[in-house]
Structures are given as structure tokens and as C-alpha cells.
Simulated scan of single mutants.
Amino acid sequence: MNLNHELFTMCMILKDDKVLLINRPNKLGFPGYIAPGGKVDYPESIVDGAIREVREETGLIINNIIYKGLAEYCEPKTGLRSMVFNYLATSFEGELLQNPPEGELLWIEREKAIELPMQDWFKSRFPLFFKQGTFEISSIWDKDNNITTGKTEKYYAEGKFEEAGFIR
């Protein structure tokens, strides 16, 4: 079996306790609200891919970007590993696009954002962008049955290792 890797980014943009989300239509996949991001082009760096994707999808140029963690999805039947590098941006310049390519843009209070329609995987990852430290999430995905068959979650904050809520 050939192993394939895909690299993606996701960048939560935070300003005055509001986040910028995209309401993606069904036709683009992953419908509902989501943070900007997308595929990393070879040979660009992962962080440069995050900055480019935010600019292409929102019109904003992010200045202060913080690495928050990795979420990966493995499909054993196909040999595909998709890795999503997650960032938080707290400073930017520019104006929002009038006709964004990925869907309508919405600034919303961080606490209200979780009430919006969004994919389950994004809803569970959402609070991790604002938690101190970094995270790793690794999921084994059965695409045929549309289920997760295995999952590992780890959190690293203040020099401590946390796994599924337990500090070690």
C-alpha cells in the first residue's frame, strides 16, 4: 500500500474576544462554520501556508501567529494521513474580502461561536485554540463506515503533559 500525506492549516483569528469564522456552503465540503485554512502548497513552509490561506480566504494579513497544535486523521484502508497544523492569530491588517471564495465571513463573540452550526470535529477542537499550551489529536478514520475507530488526544500546558483531562 502506498502511504500518502496531506498537509493543511487552520487559523483561528481573535480580536477583542471575537473570532472570525467562515460559513462554508455544502458544495465546498465541511459545511457550517469553520476557521480559515487549507492545503499547504509544496514547497512552502507550513506557517507560510497558514498565512497565505488566511489572506486568500479573508483578505487579512496576519502578523502575530501562535502555533496551537496538530490534528491528524489516518485512513488505514487508503494509506492517507491528513495533518492539520492549527494556529491562533491575534494581530492582523487589511480589510475583509467583499466576496470571499470559501463562504460568508462572520465576526462573532468567542463564547457564542460554539452555538453556530459546525462540524463535530471543529466544535471539539474550537476551545483548544484558546487553551494555554499546545495539543495533539490523532484519529483513525474508517471512511467506508464514516466513523472514528481510534483516537489519541494529548495536551501540553505549562510544562505538564495532559491526556484526556489527566495531568501527568
Score class of each variant (00 low, 15 high):
54 V>L: 01
88 L>A: 09
112 K>T: 13
61 I>V: 12
81 R>I: 15
123 K>N: 06
6 E>F: 00
28 L>E: 06
26 N>T: 10
81 R>W: 09
2 N>Q: 13
97 L>I: 12
142 D>E: 03
74 C>V: 15
92 F>L: 11
69 G>Y: 11
88 L>C: 06
26 N>P: 10
132 Q>H: 05
38 G>E: 02
10 M>N: 08
122 F>Q: 13
163 E>A: 12
165 G>T: 02
106 L>R: 12
61 I>S: 11
125 R>P: 00
114 I>T: 11
110 R>H: 00
147 I>Y: 04
155 Y>D: 12
111 E>L: 14
6 E>D: 05
78 T>L: 11
31 P>Q: 08
33 Y>I: 05
40 V>Q: 03
103 G>V: 10
137 I>T: 13
73 Y>D: 12
81 R>Y: 09
51 I>V: 14
145 N>R: 15
68 K>P: 02
96 L>N: 06
10 M>Q: 07
105 L>I: 05
5 H>M: 09
18 K>C: 08
99 N>D: 12
132 Q>L: 09
111 E>N: 12
95 E>M: 04
124 S>I: 15
37 G>T: 13
114 I>R: 04
155 Y>Q: 14
40 V>W: 01
86 N>G: 05
119 Q>H: 07
9 T>F: 04
72 E>G: 01
96 L>K: 06
85 F>V: 13
3 L>M: 02
80 L>H: 12
122 F>L: 09
136 E>L: 08
131 K>E: 08
153 E>I: 15
125 R>Q: 06
74 C>H: 15
86 N>D: 03
98 Q>L: 13
46 I>T: 12
86 N>F: 01
14 L>A: 03
41 D>V: 14
6 E>S: 05
147 I>P: 06
105 L>F: 02
2 N>I: 15
51 I>S: 10
69 G>D: 03
40 V>K: 00
38 G>R: 01
1 M>Y: 10
67 Y>S: 10
3 L>N: 15
102 E>K: 02
95 E>I: 04
166 F>M: 14
119 Q>W: 08
160 K>M: 07
159 G>Q: 00
148 T>K: 05
63 N>M: 01
71 A>L: 07
32 G>W: 06
8 F>Y: 14
4 N>A: 14
138 S>L: 03
